[in-house]
Each structure stands twice: as structure tokens, then as C-alpha cells.
């Protein structure tokens, strides 16, 4: 039997994502890709894979996985999720071996909204326009262009040796923070009143429950346009903050359309997109404006931090033994204890 990950259960919005689908924005194709690219990179790098390799993106609805046909090495990173192997708690960023018969589960933890499950191998799915990134709305990528559901089976090709012990992943860029999200003024910031521009940076915005991979909707005072809310469509970048007629800002995320017709008051800087993505509905945060030079410097600092790599901390031997038992790697002993 070929080796595969079987989905035992999946909340809404669990998808396969890689670094995204560049090159087709001009044909109306949404880029998709990870909500938190730094977290995807951490999971992949922990297994020695390319930072943008395809992995499973899970969210607050949770996910349960099991291995079929062989032991599969996994690495998980993202928000502070509640991860368990056969019920035993794991660090929220870790590398483990998943043996057939064991159940690996992800549930919402104290903070964070997205996490990534990378495999020590390759998710064996067909490329769509050069990428495995799922865009469910247009039915492209991933598994049949849709989110994952109970019973789905993801074949793993080019399977590599699983890790020999459980380790915590220590990657400084995974730290969440309540610091204001940094933005630079948007291409149509001159289409807002002075009061709206002030309110934009002075408000504690609340993330609306009506937020998804396409857009994060913000609750706060309506932002008033100075020259109407319809503009002739133009390009939309990751993190663009559009303000439609109702005055409620929308931050355009991974599943954004490549063009749009509402004025953009600001744009979240690249270094802070992941931080924003990890906010949960109901969480509050502020925006602060920085210069484009600062945005580039922060982008460089973040790229250098990620390039410096992460470290793996093997867990205490007694813990490791416990996890090996749970993972059924010490077959005879595990069988004995279960009986």
C-alpha cells in the first residue's frame, strides 16, 4: 500500500497550500498560498524541505490525521494550537513521527488562527498552473480544488526518513505579538477625509467573524471617503486595505482577487502580514504608519531571520519515550501496555 495521510476529521477551511500561484494575476487568477508564509516556512524548514513546499493549512476548526502504509515524518508550526498525538499534548511547533494507528490532532489553542502541517516527503497532487495552492472559490489546486474533508487521502511521494524523536521547533519569527500592525499609505489614501485618515490609525480595530482567507473584515468607526467609494478597477496587492461604501475596511489576504474597485487607504507591510493573519475574530489591534524605507528594512530583517534558520530542541528523554510509545514505534512494548 502506498503511503498516505488520511483525514479523520477536518473543520472548515483546511486546504493544501504552497507558496502560491504566481504569474497568472493578469488572467484574473487569485494567487492563494499560505495565510502565514513564515509559519509555512518554519514547518517545511524543520524537515529540510523548501520553505514554500506544499503543506496542509489548518485553522480554528481543527484537523485530525493518521498515517497509512508507513511512518510519516511531520512538522507543524503556526499559532499556539493545541496539538496532540494520541491524546498526549505536544508543543505547538514540533516535529514528530506519525505511525499507522496513531492519531495526530490539531485544535484551536490559546492564540493564533492558522497552522501548517508539512510532511517529510511530497504531497502527491497534480499542479494547477504550476502550483498546489488551493483556491476553493475558483476550484484550483490542492485536492480537486477544494478544502479537505473527513475520509480524504493525501498520497505522500518521495517519503523520507521520519525524525527519530519528538522535537520542539524554535523559530523566533513564530512569536505572536500585540504590537500595532505596520502599514504604508495606500494608493488611494488621498480619497479619504482627514478625519478618516486619523481614525484609521487611532482606532482599536476588531477583527470581524466574517473574515476568511480572502479578506479580514474590520469593525470600528466607518471611514468616510472624500470623493466617493467607486474607483475604476486597479491592481490589488497582498495586504491592501480596501474601504467599500459602508466604510468598514477589508484587508485583502491570500485569496484576494488580483484587481479591485474600491479605494485602498493603506497596505499592510510584508513583514506583518503573518502577524495579522494570526489574529482571531474578536481580537483588537491598531495600525501604525511607517515609511516605505522602514517597510523594506523590516522585510529584509525578517528574511534574514528566516534565512538564519530554526533550531530543534529534542524533548526530555522520558517524554520522548512516552511519545514513542504513543506513536507505536516500540511495537511490542506498546502492545503490552495497551493490553
Amino acid at each position: 500500500m502506498s503511503v498516505a495521510l488520511r483525514i479523520r476529521s477536518a473543520g472548515p477551511g483546511v486546504t493544501v497550500q504552497d507558496a502560491g500561484r504566481p504569474g497568472y494575476l493578469r488572467y484574473g487568477v487569485t494567487p492563494a498560498g499560505p495565510m502565514d508564509a513564515g509559519a509555512l516556512a518554519a514547518a517545511n524548514l524543520a524537515l529540510g524541505s523548501a520553505a514554500g513546499a506544499a503543506a496542509i493549512e489548518a485553522s480554528l476548526g481543527g484537523l485530525e490525521l493518521e498515517a497509512e502504509g508507513g511512518v510519516i515524518g511531520l512538522a507543524v508550526a503556526g499559532g499556539a494550537f493545541d496539538l496532540r498525538l494520541d491524546g498526549a499534548p505536544l508543543p505547538s511547533a514540533c516535529r514528530l513521527a506519525l505511525a499507522p494507528g496513531a492519531v495526530f490532532s490539531i485544535r484551536a489553542g490559546p492564540s493564533g488562527a492558522w497552522c501548517y502541517v508539512a510532511v517529510a516527503g511530497r504531497l502527491d497532487l497534480p499542479l494547477a498552473l504550476g502550483s498546489l495552492a488551493t483556491h476553493a472559490r475558483s476550484g484550483l489546486g490542492g485536492l480537486s480544488g477544494r478544502g479537505l474533508a473527513a475520509g480524504d487521502r493525501l498520497a505522500v511521494a518521495e517519503l523520507r526518513e521520519p525524525p527519530s524523536c519528538l522535537s520542539a521547533i524554535e523559530a523566533p519569527w513564530l512569536a505572536l505579538s500585540a504590537a500595532p500592525i505596520r502599514v504604508i499609505p495606500g494608493p488611494q489614501h488621498d480619497r479619504f477625509t482627514e478625519a478618516a485618515l486619523r481614525a484609521f490609525v487611532e482606532t482599536d480595530w476588531r477583527l470581524s467573524p466574517r473574515s476568511d482567507r480572502m479578506a479580514y473584515r474590520l469593525e470600528g468607526p466607518p471611514l468616510v471617503h472624500s470623493a466617493g467609494h467607486d474607483i475604476v478597477s486597479d491592481g490589488v496587492a497582498l495586504g491592501a486595505i480596501q474601504v467599500p461604501g459602508d466604510g468598514a475596511p477589508l484587508v485583502l489576504m491570500a485569496d484576494r482577487q488580483p484587481t479591485g474597485g474600491y479605494p485602498k487607504i493603506a497596505n499592510v507591510i510584508g513583514a506583518d502580514i503573518g502577524l495579522l493573519a494570526q489574529k482571531r475574530p474578536g481580537e483588537s489591534f491598531a495600525f501604525v504608519s511607517v515609511s516605505i524605507e522602514e517597510a523594506v528594512a523590516l522585510r529584509r530583517a525578517r528574511a534574514e531571520t528566516i534565512a538564519a534558520g530554526l533550531s530543534m530542541r529534542p524533548l526530555a528523554p522520558e517524554l520522548t519515550a512516552e511519545f514513542l510509545l504513543a506513536a507505536n514505534l516500540i511495537g511490542g512494548v506498546a502492545d503490552a501496555t495497551q493490553e
Partner: peptide, 9 residues
């Protein structure tokens, strides 16, 4: 026009 630090309009 800048649309973030990685897109120029």
C-alpha cells in the same frame, strides 16, 4: 503609487 513595499502602480 505604492501598494505596499512590493508593488508599484
Amino acid at each position: 503609487l505604492d501598494a505596499g513595499e512590493a508593488a508599484l502602480v
